[in-house]
Design a protein around this nucleic acid. Structure first.
Length: 617
DNA sequence: AAAAAAT
């Protein structure tokens, strides 16, 4: 290969470019690097490096996409050089690199202890790690639209997933794909961008991890701009980045990734705030092929130069609507648009969101290219194995009502939602005083406390968990028998997420909510949910709802489900705002537009769906 | 209005 001289000249050009400041020291402390436009980095040549004089390097990949630009020079791709791939300080890190030898994936040996840790031991053959009993999920309606939508798969082997991955999937007791996975796996495999309206519990994590790992297991590591590695400070070059709104959710995705990368060359990492950054940096050093992160901590690591996004093939935004609700948009845009992330065309982007409001549509327009829109029916609310009860309880009576409720039917795990962090603590103390085994999870507790609370709850050490919104969505806690909305949320979607924490795995669950005059705003949505799930509607609620509609506005648009649809359907096929085509001309073609629906219930009409909405679940 | 998230 004649790229060595090339290298040198590039280096010297770069050096000149950067040398405008003459002899004065241009050291930039790590945390200040990449502020401002010229993002140069100092990099100390490795000892064995024959190239001298090239101290400065442009951050790889910004304009040049996935190959790291002129620093994407590849060492010979042969014999025993596996450790040169994507490992900072090549000689120091070998363990997972050893699983990619001479262009082949060599799975590591089995490890009984690790296997038990990752997959656990389950006597129940129907046990499934995310609490889904698949047979009960077959009727979740899914609708896919966009250009050239791939046909959904029927099982994991139809276009086969990677062999090792299949073994791990079996270890995790997955038997067949969930409805989301049936659609998302071929979509991701085909390299398409995806916007999916789906909730946790639908199996969406596997929906993107499976095809992603299949591809990574097969293609192996790719070379990194080795010169960009400083000898002292190594850098992670993940191939896939998953952004999640909360630390718990990030951890959960990471744990799933650990299962499915067992014995493979791919090493997952997780970073989030509230935990010592040093440990996380060391983990990144040890190899970081898939990175799960909350936005704040990732930005921190990017600014410290510990992570480069130049090699990203896959970008996943999980719970995108929540991330925007939490004000993460600037940070997400910084990560995606202002660092060294490959451009839209040079990466594959998958967005998941429970709803599809206009700000998410804009994000989709900016981050996705010719995407497929997938909408997946709600898992929780449609399920009739959750008994929903609404009790009228004034605020001052809530404590005693709760005690009544608990003494009447507290068995298994009870999850209690409150609105404020203060109330979470106060109620937990109260319950402990009453000799209940209660613990709390909310944003003012330290990360360690949150983790302890969650694992105590999961392990039944504390069978009551009092939680704020931090636990409402996404958290996967199997076997919750009773969800109590001590305070009702103001957002009906939050309500659905909350009650969806129970009644999983085909078990029956109970959701009890304390309602009073402070909850007027949720009446309409609540009525719809209760009706949809064939639940009893208390008379005080139907009375209120009748009063509301008499006095107020009539419902616009006519559809029974409109207030909950949140525009979460593919606005592109409904004419939309027009902004779609105008900013991205390449997407304006309409020729191959199609829509594939699968698993639809047959009782659309009965459920109040007009024909106009028939393609939406 | 509250919660969450980088320190």
């Amino acid at each position: 290969m004649a790229d060595l001289p090339q290298k040198v000249s590039n280096l010297s050009i770069n050096n000149k470019e950067n040398g405008g400041d003459g002899g004065k020291s241009s050291y930039v402390p790590p945390h200040l690097r990449s502020r401002g436009k010229p993002s140069f980095e100092r990099s100390t040549p490795k000892q064995e490096d024959k190239v001298t004089g090239g101290d400065f390097f442009r951050r790889a990949g910004r304009q040049t996409g996935n190959n790291g630009g002129f620093f994407g020079f590849s060492k010979e791709r042969n014999g025993g050089t596996s450790a040169n791939y994507n490992r900072g300080g090549s000689s120091n890190y070998k363990s997972s690199g050893n699983r990619w030898v001479n262009g082949k994936h060599i799975p590591g040996p089995k490890n009984a202890k690790l296997e038990a840790e990752l997959f656990g031991v389950h006597e129940d053959p129907d046990y499934h790690s995310s609490g889904i009993k698949f047979d009960n999920y077959d009727d979740i309606p899914v609708d896919a639209s966009g250009k050239d939508v791939p046909e959904p798969i029927l099982d994991f082997s139809s276009p086969p997933l990677d062999e090792l991955l299949m073994e791990n999937i079996k270890l995790a007791s997955f038997t067949k794909p969930t409805p989301v996975q049936k659609y998302s796996i071929p979509i991701v495999t085909k390299g398409r961008d995806l916007m999916a309206c789906a909730q946790t519990g639908s199996g969406k994590t596997g929906g993107f991890l499976f095809p992603l790992f299949t591809e990574l297991f097969r293609s192996g590591p790719s070379p990194v701009p080795e010169k960009a590695q400083s000898f002292y400070s190594r850098k992670g070059y993940p191939y896939a980045l998953v952004l999640a709104p909360t630390r718990e959710l990030a951890t959960q995705i990471f744990e799933e990734a650990r299962k499915f990368t067992y014995r493979s060359w791919v090493r997952p990492c997780v970073v989030y705030g509230g935990a010592p950054i040093g440990n996380q940096m060391r983990e990144v050093d040890r190899g970081c092929d898939l990175l799960v992160a909350t936005p704040g901590r990732l930005n921190d690591l990017l600014e410290r130069g510990k992570v480069s996004l130049a090699n990203i093939k896959y970008l996943v935004l999980d719970e995108a609507d929540r991330m925007l609700d939490m004000g993460f948009e600037p940070q997400i845009r910084h990560i995606v648009e202002e660092c060294d992330m490959p451009s839209v065309e040079n990466r594959q982007t998958l967005m998941f969101s429970a709803t599809f409001p206009v700000d998410i549509q804009h994000l989709a327009r900016d981050f996705l290219d010719n995407y497929i829109f997938l909408s997946v029916g709600r898992v929780g609310s449609t399920s009739e194995n959750i008994t929903q009860r609404i009790l009228y309880v004034d605020d001052m009576d809530k404590k005693s009502a709760l005690l009544d409720l608990l003494s009447a039917e507290h068995k298994g795990l009870t999850l209690i939602f409150v609105e404020t962090k203060r109330m979470a603590d106060q109620l937990t103390d109260f319950l402990i005083m009453q000799n209940f085994k209660a613990t709390a999870i909310h944003g003012d507790r330290t990360q360690a406390e949150r983790e302890r609370a969650l694992s105590a709850f999961k392990a039944n050490v504390a069978d009551i968990l009092v939680a704020t919104a931090v636990a409402a969505r996404g958290l996967d806690i199997p076997n919750v028998t009773h969800v109590i909305n001590y305070d009702l949320p103001s957002d009906i979607d939050d309500y659905v997420h909350r009650i969806g924490r129970t009644g999983r795995a085909g078990n029956t669950g109970v959701a009890t909510s304390f309602f009073n005059s402070n909850n007027q705003n949720i009446v309409k949505g609540l009525m719809e949910i209760l009706n949809e799930a064939n639940q009893e509607v208390p008379t005080f609620l139907s009375d209120l709802s009748r009063q509301n509609s008499r006095g107020g506005r009539t419902r616009g648009g006519g559809g029974f489900f409109n207030s909950r649809n949140n525009g979460s359907r593919d606005y592109r096929k409904h004419g939309g705002s027009g902004s779609f085509g105008s900013t991205r001309p390449r997407n304006t073609g309409t020729s191959n537009w199609g829509s594939i629906g699968g698993g639809f219930r047959n009782d659309n009409e009965k459920n109040g769906y007009g024909n106009s909405n028939a393609s939406w679940w």
